[in-house]
């Protein structure tokens, strides 16, 4: 009994210890890493993956997967940029963009819940569809000339009390989703669905509705990340967000969430996001080629999952 608790506790802290270890190693190798300017830079870099990964955590907790996040990011970015070019107020365009992300996510959710199709297949298909629509809409070219609204510029490039606005957005989103997952009945339903869908259904939980909402959250977070990217680049790129789903899934898994569903924490995902971000940032500082960076990232993911296996 006692040893079981200890293992559980240990399991909880493995990602955190790995993060601390990584920070120490990178700092020793290049002290420039803990320079405040670099830390701020790092926080801005990870905000996009962070937002997507937080949404992905809900999806993976139910035992699902969302491969379409990168395409939703690109499509909502293009649509919002298009609106801005045609004179819509940028703030309104951003809000509509985020809502559209939720709608695209809900479309995934409906196909999965009502169509009884596997999440992998559905989101693989919509990943292609949304990407294709982006290319159609942008004619394959970047959308530029978004105007010079100060508020919109602030969204991707600004600072709030010295902290990059995207990082602030990420932290607010984290707090909100953490509350949703751990303090609200919706979170309980999410875990129940991942732990035993049949039991959840028989317990009177509207399983289909919860699923639609979860994919909707994932789409919404991807769109929010898309808005930040649009502001940072001051344009919409038709190929934006490609392979972003992979970094998000990696962060969720590194954070200790089980791909089988039912087990995991969004705080773990945050740590996973930080680990991936520090790996990228640290290896850049150390002058490691981006080719090797990919290899290292992959190896880290494998080790993390292996440790997770050992634990259980």
């Amino acid at each position: 009994m006692k040893t079981g608790k200890l293992t559980a506790l240990w399991g909880k802290f493995v990602p955190l210890l790995a993060l601390i270890g990584l920070i120490v190693v990178v700092t020793v190798l290049n002290p420039a890493f803990i320079d405040p300017a670099n830390i701020m830079n790092l926080l801005r870099q990870i905000s996009i993956n962070g937002l997507i990964a937080f949404g992905m955590t809900f999806v993976i907790l139910t035992g699902g997967i969302d491969l379409s996040v990168g395409s939703i990011l690109a499509l909502t970015s293009a649509l919002a940029a298009g609106m801005m070019v045609s004179g819509v107020d940028p703030i309104i365009a951003v809000i509509i963009g985020v809502i559209l992300g939720a709608v695209f996510g809900a479309f995934n959710g409906l196909l999965i819940a009502k169509g009884k199709m596997a999440p992998f297949i559905v989101t693989l298909a919509t990943m292609t569809i949304f990407r294709g629509l982006t290319l159609v809409y942008t004619e394959g070219k970047p959308i530029t000339g978004l105007g010079d609204s100060y508020a919109f510029q602030l969204f991707g490039k600004g600072y709030f009390l010295g902290i990059p606005v995207p990082a602030v957005t990420m932290v607010i989103a984290f707090a909100a989703l953490w509350f949703l997952l751990h303090k609200m009945s919706f979170g309980r339903k999410t875990y129940a669905l991942g732990g035993n869908e049949k039991a959840a259904l028989i317990s009177g939980i509207k399983v289909d509705r919860v699923k639609v909402m979860i994919y909707s959250i994932s789409g919404m977070m991807a769109a929010l990340a898309g808005m930040i990217l649009t502001s940072r680049l001051n344009s919409a790129q038709p190929t934006a967000g490609q392979a972003y789903e992979m970094d998000a899934i990696a962060a969720v898994v590194l954070g200790g969430t089980s791909l089988a569903g039912g087990k995991g924490r969004i705080a773990g995902t945050f740590i996973g996001v930080l680990i991936i971000g520090i790996l990228n940032n640290g290896m850049n500082l150390l002058g490691i080629s981006s080719f090797y960076q990919q290899v290292v990232k992959g190896v880290v993911i494998l080790i993390a999952v292996l440790l997770d296996r050992k634990k259980s």
Partner: peptide, 9 residues
């Protein structure tokens, strides 16, 4: 086990 309980809960 299959339909009544979420065993991890």
């Amino acid at each position: 086990k299959d339909e009544g309980l979420v065993l991890d809960f």
